[in-house]
Write a protein that binds this DNA or RNA. Structure first.
Length: 799
DNA sequence: TATAACAGTATTTTT
DNA sequence: TACTGTTATA
C-alpha cells in the first residue's frame, strides 16, 4: 500500500512547537539527503526524534520503513524511548539500533547465502587478538618487527577500508617484509575466521557491504524496506560504514526489484533512493584512530548532490563561560567549518582549575568538590569525572572510596571481558556454533580436566587427518589413541556439549529449553562454578559470583525475550558497549573516559589529568592529525558540562611504578584567562618556595624528568612547566608556548655525527632510522648510554 | 600436566 | 603496577 503523502505543513504542531528555526527546518525538510551539523548540546536528539515522528505522523512513512542508526545501544535505547514517547507503539516496527546490531541482524538473516550458519560466532577484540596471536607466533612475525597489536590494528584498518587480503596483496608493497608479513597474517586470519564460522567486529560491517554488492537482489530487499535512513554521530563513521549507508540508499535497479514490491516505483521500474538524514559535528570526531573518516561529513555535500545542510548552533546545555572555553579551544583546529556555540542562559560560574601535587592530591580535590556540590544540592547522578586513560581510575577510586563518594565506573575492565565470563560465553558459543574452534579450545581445559597442549594437538591432528572439525574429533575420543583418563574426559565433555545442543534444538519434541536453563545445566555438568568455589580463594569466589551474575543475565534475557534463542542472547551480549550500562538513577557519580563521555551530559563535570603526555596523549604525537583529535577530545569533555566545569591536573604522575613530573597541558592555555578561576594554578604549585611539595623534591626537583629511555618523548619539553602561567602573553602566542612545540624535523643527522642533548649530554649518532617526521636517531651518549630519540622533538643539537 | 616462582615488558581511546 | 611468558619442579 502506498503511504498517503502530505506536505510538511501538516506535521503536528506539538512536534515543531518550541523548536528554534533551524531545528524546525531540520524536522520539516524533505528531500533525498539532509546533513544536520549539530554542535554540542544543540538538541540534535530532539530534532532526530521529532523528525522521525513527523514522518510517521504525516503518514509519509510506515514505522517499518525507518532505519535509525546510533553508535551505542544506550543511544539507541534512548532514541527508541523518546520516539515511543511521541508515537506510542508505532516505534516497535522501526529499526533503531547500532551499526553493528543492524548488520548482525541482516547477516544472520542472510547467513546461508554465503555459507555461514545462522548461528555464526562474533569475536570481540580479545578473541580476535587471541587468534592473531596464534598466527603471529606461527609465522614468527614478532622477530621481524610485527607485533600482535600492530597486526591487529593493520588488519582492522584494512577491513574498515573494505580491503580484503587479495585487495591488499594487489596494493601492498610486498618488497617491504613487514607488509608481506601483515598480508600473510591477514590471509591466515581470514581463513581461520571462515573455518571457525566467525566474524570479528569489523567484519560485521564489511561483510554486509560485500553481501549487498555481490547480491544486488538482496540489497534491493533492504533498499525497498528502509525508505528513511537516519544516522547519528556521522562524524565517527568509517569507510565501511559509509559504504553501507551508500548501499542502503542506492537506487534499486529494475531487474533487482522483487516481484511483490508494492511501494511507488520510478517510471523505469526502479526503486528510488531512500532519504538519508545524517547528524554530526566534525568537532566531535574522536575516533579517527579506529578508522573514522572525517571526510564522510566534510564531503557530504559532494557525495550527495542536492543535499541540504542545516546548522544548529544554539546550545541548550551549558553556560556561556563553558561555551566560550569550548569555542576558544576548538577554534585552534584549522580546517574546520566555523561554528560558534552560543546560549541565552547567561555566563554562569567560572571554570574551576586545580593543580594537585600528585594524582592523589588531584583526586582529593575532586572528592572535596563533589561533597561541596552535593551540599549545594547537586545529586551524585548529575556529576561525572572524566579522564583520558583508564589507568587514571586507580587514584580516583582510592580517594573516592575513602571520601565516601558513591561512584560508578563506566567501562574499564568490563564484565564481559573477565576471564571467567569469557569462559562461560565460550561454552555457549561452542554450543551455538560447534565449528568455532577458538571457543572449543578455550573451554576444553576450563575447568581443569588434565587436557593440555599435547592433547589438544593430538585432537587437532586427528581432525585434520579425518577431515573433521576439532569438535567432531572430540566426539571420537576413543579413536584418538590417548590415555584412558584423558580419553574419558574428552568423551564426557563432548557428550555434555551434545546434550546442551540437543536441549535447545528448535525441532526438539518438547520444544527448546530456555537459554538460562540450558546454561545452568551445562555449568552444573562441567562443574564450573563448583570448581571455583572449592579453591577457597576469595578471588575465585568473586569469579563464581560473576558466573552466577551471567546466569542471571540469561534469566533476564529469557524473561524479556520469550522466543529468544541462544544465538540472540550471544548477539546481545557480544554487542554491549561501555556506555550501555549507565543508568541515570543509580545515585552515584559516574567515572568514565573522555571517549565514553561523548553524547552524555552532566550538571557538573570534572576533567582530570589535563597534562601534557596525557591530554594530549603522548601516543598521539606521532600520528598525523593526532593533536587535533586530542583537542577535539578535550572539547567533547568541556561541552559535556551543563553548569560547572572543573579542570584539574597533577604535578607528578605515577605510571607503572615510576613517578614522573607532569606538565600542564598546552590546551589549558587555549582557554581565555578570565574564564578560569584557579584554586591552585600550575604556577602557584611550582613556585611556592618553602612549601614546595615533597613530591617534587623527592624526585630531584627541577631536574626531575622522566627516567624512561627516550628523552625525545617529551614534546612539550622542559621550560613549559616553569614558563607556564595562563597569562595574556601566552595566549597571544597562538597557543604555542615557546619551546612547547619543538620542531627539529629539518635537522639532518648521519651516522658518526656528534650531537648534544639537553639532558643526556654529548654523544655520537650511531644510526638514523625511519623517514619524515618519524625519523629516529640512535645515539651513544658518552654519559647516559645508548638512546633512541625521535629527531623531530628531541632537544638535540648538532655539534 | 600443573603449579610456583621469576623475569620482562607494556599502557590510548572502543563499536 | 600488573599481566604475560618462561622455567624449574612436583
Amino acid at each position: 500500500m502506498q503511504p498517503f503523502v502530505l506536505g510538511p505543513e501538516s506535521i503536528p504542531a506539538e512536534l515543531v512547537d518550541g523548536l528554534n528555526p533551524p531545528q524546525r527546518a531540520a524536522v520539516e525538510h524533505r528531500g533525498e539527503a539532509l546533513l544536520i551539523v549539530a554542535g554540542a548540546g544543540s538538541g540534535k536528539t530532539r530534532v532526530l526524534t521529532h523528525r522521525i515522528a513527523g514522518l510517521i505522523a504525516t503518514r509519509e512513512a510506515w514505522p517499518s520503513q525507518i532505519l535509525a542508526i546510533t553508535f551505542t545501544n544506550k543511544a539507541a535505547a534512548e532514541m527508541r524511548e523518546r520516539v515511543g514517547h511521541l508515537l506510542g507503539e508505532a516505534v516497535e516496527g522501526m529499526w533503531i539500533s547500532t551499526f553493528h546490531s543492524a548488520c548482525v541482524r541482516i547477516l544472520r538473516r542472510e547467513a546461508e547465502r554465503f555459507g555461514y550458519p545462522q548461528g555464526f560466532t562474533i569475536y570481540d577484540a580479545a578473541d580476535s587478538k587471541a587468534l592473531i596471536k596464534r598466527i603471529v607466533k606461527a609465522v614468527d612475525a614478532e622477530s621481524l618487527g610485527v607485533s600482535v597489536s600492530q597486526a591487529q590494528h593493520r588488519i582492522s584498518g584494512l577491513k574498515n577500508e573494505l580491503i580484503d587480503p587479495d585487495g591488499f596483496s594487489r596494493q601492498a608493497d610486498l618488497s617491504n617484509p613487514r607488509d608481506a608479513l601483515v598480508l600473510e597474517i591477514y590471509r591466515q586470519y581470514d581463513r581461520e575466521l571462515r573455518r571457525n564460522r566467525a566474524f570479528d567486529f569489523d567484519d560485521l560491517i564489511a561483510q554486509t557491504v560485500w553481501l549487498f554488492r555481490a547480491h544486488p537482489e538482496i540489497a534491493a530487499l533492504y533498499q525497498r524496506r528502509f525508505r528513511h535512513v537516519l544516522v547519528d554521530e556521522y562524524q565517527d563513521t568509517n569507510h565501511a560504514q559509509y559504504a553501507l549507508i551508500r548501499e542502503l540508499t542506492r537506487r534499486a535497479e529494475p531487474q533487482h526489484v522483487p516481484a511483490d514490491t508494492r511501494i511507488a516505483l520510478d517510471p523505469d521500474g526502479s526503486i528510488p533512493p531512500a532519504s538519508l538524514t545524517v547528524v554530526g559535528d566534525s568537532d566531535q570526531s574522536i575516533y579517527a584512530f579506529r578508522g573514522a573518516d572525517i571526510r564522510n561529513i566534510t564531503e557530504f555535500e559532494r557525495d550527495f548532490p542536492g543535499a541540504e545542510v542545516i546548522l544548529l548552533e544554539q546550545n541548550y546545555r551549558s553556560t556561556q563561560n563553558i561555551l566560550d572555553a569550548a569555542n576558544a579551544v576548538i577554534s585552534r583546529n584549522f580546517d574546520r567549518r566555523e561554528k560558534r556555540l552560543f546560549t541565552t542562559s547567561g555566563a554562569g560560574a567560572k571554570i574551576v582549575g586545580y593543580t594537585g601535587y600528585s594524582a592523589h592530591d588531584e583526586a582529593q580535590f575532586v572528592a572535596d568538590e563533589i561533597h561541596l556540590l552535593r551540599d549545594a544540592g547537586t545529586s551524585f547522578n548529575d556529576i561525572a569525572v572524566f579522564y583520558r586513560t583508564n589507568a587514571q581510575t586507580r587514584a580516583l577510586e582510592e580517594i573516592l572510596i575513602r571520601a565516601a563518594v558513591p561512584y560508578r565506573l563506566i567501562g574499564g575492565t568490563k564484565f564481559y571481558e573477565r576471564a571467567e565470563v569469557k569462559d562461560v560465553l565460550a561454552y555457549l558459543m561452542t554450543v551455538a556454533n560447534p565449528a568455532d574452534e577458538l571457543s572449543v579450545r578455550r573451554i576444553i581445559n576450563a575447568p581443569k580436566r588434565g587436557i593440555g597442549p599435547a592433547t589438544e594437538t593430538a585432537i587437532s591432528n586427528y581432525a585434520e587427518a579425518e577431515q573433521l572439525t576439532f569438535r567432531q574429533a572430540m566426539g571420537r575420543a576413543d579413536a584418538l589413541g590417548l590415555g584412558p583418563k584423558v580419553t574419558r574426559e574428552i568423551a564426557a565433555l563432548a557428550e555434555i556439549l551434545d546434550r546442551a545442543e540437543a536441549s535447545i534444538a528448535p525441532d526438539r519434541p518438547q520444544g527448546p529449553v530456555p537459554v538460562s536453563r540450558m546454561l545452568a545445566t551445562l555449568l552444573g555438568d562441567v562443574r564450573y562454578t563448583e570448581t571455583l568455589r572449592a579453591t577457597g580463594n576469595p578471588q575465585d569466589d568473586a569469579r563464581a559470583e560473576n558466573v552466577e551474575e551471567l546466569v542471571n543475565v540469561a534469566k533476564e534475557f529469557d524473561k524479556t525475550h520469550p522466543d529468544g534463542t541462544l544465538v540472540d542472547f550471544l548477539t546481545e551480549v557480544a554487542l554491549v558497549a561501555a556506555a550501555d550500562d549507565l543508568d541515570d538513577e543509580s545515585g552515584a557519580v559516574s567515572l568514565m573516559t573522555l571517549h565514553t563521555a561523548k553524547g552524555l551530559e552532566f550538571d557538573a563535570v570534572f576533567l582530570t589529568g589535563v597534562e601534557e603526555e596525557l591530554l594530549p596523549h603522548r601516543m598521539s604525537a606521532d600520528e598525523p592529525g593526532g593533536l587535533a583529535e586530542e583537542r577535539r577530545l578535550f572539547y567533547v569533555g568541556i561541552t559535556r558540562a551543563r553548569k560547572v566545569l572543573h579542570l584539574s591536573l597533577a604535578m607528578t604522575r605515577t605510571t607503572f611504578g615510576e613517578s614522573s613530573v607532569a606538565m600542564p597541558s598546552r590546551f589549558l592555555q587555549e582557554i581565555p584567562e578570565g574564564l578560569i578561576e584557579w584554586r591552585q594554578s600550575p604556577g602557584m604549585a611550582t613556585s611556592l618556595g618553602g612549601t614546595r611539595p615533597r613530591a617534587l623534591n623527592a624526585h630531584g626537583g627541577e631536574g626531575g624528568r622522566r627516567r624512561r629511555a627516550d628523552g625525545g618523548e617529551l614534546p612539550a619539553g622542559r621550560g613549559l612547566r616553569s614558563e607556564f602561567r595562563p597569562t595574556r602573553e601566552n595566549q597571544q602566542r597562538g597557543g604555542r608556548v615557546s619551546g612547547a612545540v619543538r620542531d627539529n624535523s629539518a635537522l639532518e643527522l648521519a651516522s658518526g655525527d656528534r650531537v648534544k642533548h639537553t639532558d643526556f649530554g654529548e654523544g655520537t649518532v650511531r644510526a638514523v632510522l625511519g623517514s619524515g617526521t618519524k625519523r629516529i636517531a640512535e645515539v651513544d651518549f658518552d654519559e647516559a648510554g645508548r638512546k633512541k630519540l625521535l629527531i623531530k622533538i628531541a632537544p638535540l643539537e648538532k655539534l
